[in-house]
């Protein structure tokens, strides 16, 4: 049911306004692509200039990263289903799917920080705990790893906040404007997923 009050005066119709919101979000995601693009440029340069890059990458806990990739991909699927449920007006189902997405997002962060803790224990964290961190490319690799995954974890957190704002107050999922917001929050979540899809082979699977 369209909420007439939701149309801002500069838009002729609600449809146009929703369209504009969606378009603006996609442009914003393009800026996110380029922000992470800078990190990937650094990573690719490191790999191109240092033959030992693969050696450094082998020390990663690739299975934690692999599980985390699966977790994020699944959460992306859930949030896509959530958007479908909101559009179909099935608020309760949407609520469960949203809850599932957020839970998986939290699992991702928990695993990520477990991994950080393991690395701290192993003494391969630059500056903080670098007992076993040899100089050269290994050090550069770990610097890059913490910058890249840290920036990504920050985006996961922002995504969780966006999704969380849908959860509360509960039941808002019925209104059409909320469907638009849910769609845009889901888009953001998918982009965070895409970034990880590229970070995983870049950091963990270079052998």
């Amino acid at each position: 049911m369209p909420d007439a009050r939701a149309v801002q005066p500069q838009f002729p119709t609600l449809e146009r306004q929703n369209d504009a919101d969606h378009f603006g979000m996609l442009l914003f995601l393009s800026t996110e692509v380029l922000i992470f693009g800078g990190v990937f440029a650094v990573a690719f340069t490191l790999r191109a200039e240092h033959a030992d890059y693969a050696q450094a990458s082998k020390q990663m806990h690739y299975w934690i990263g692999g599980i985390n990739t699966g977790v994020l991909l699944t959460s992306s699927a859930l949030v896509a289903l959530m958007v479908e449920a909101v559009r179909a007006g099935r608020a309760k189902l949407a609520g469960w799917l949203l809850g599932g997405t957020i839970a998986l997002g939290l699992v991702f962060l928990a695993l990520k920080f477990t991994e950080y803790a393991l690395e701290y224990r192993d003494g391969v964290v630059p500056i903080l705990s670098d007992a076993n961190l040899h100089g050269g490319v290994e050090r550069l690799f770990m610097d890059l790893y913490f910058v890249a995954t840290g920036l990504h974890a920050l985006h996961v957190t922002v995504g969780l906040c966006l999704l969380g704002s849908l959860l509360w107050p509960f039941g808002r999922a019925r209104r059409e404007r909320t469907a638009v917001f849910a769609g845009n929050a889901a888009l953001y979540w998918h982009l965070v997923d895409i970034v990880w899809v590229f970070l995983y082979p870049t950091l963990y699977l270079a052998r």
């Binding site: 800026t31 996110e32 692509v33 380029l34 922000i35 992470f36 693009g37 800078g38 990190v39 650094v42 630059p126 500056i127 050090r139 550069l140 610097d143 913490f146 910058v147 920036l151």
Partner: peptide, 19 residues
């Protein structure tokens, strides 16, 4: 956005001494 991330990297390098 590319400037944004570049400045972040420079700032991290300056403040934390990352390479």
């Amino acid at each position: 956005p590319v400037l944004t991330i570049t400045l972040v990297l420079v700032a991290l390098e300056r403040v934390f001494g990352l390479g």
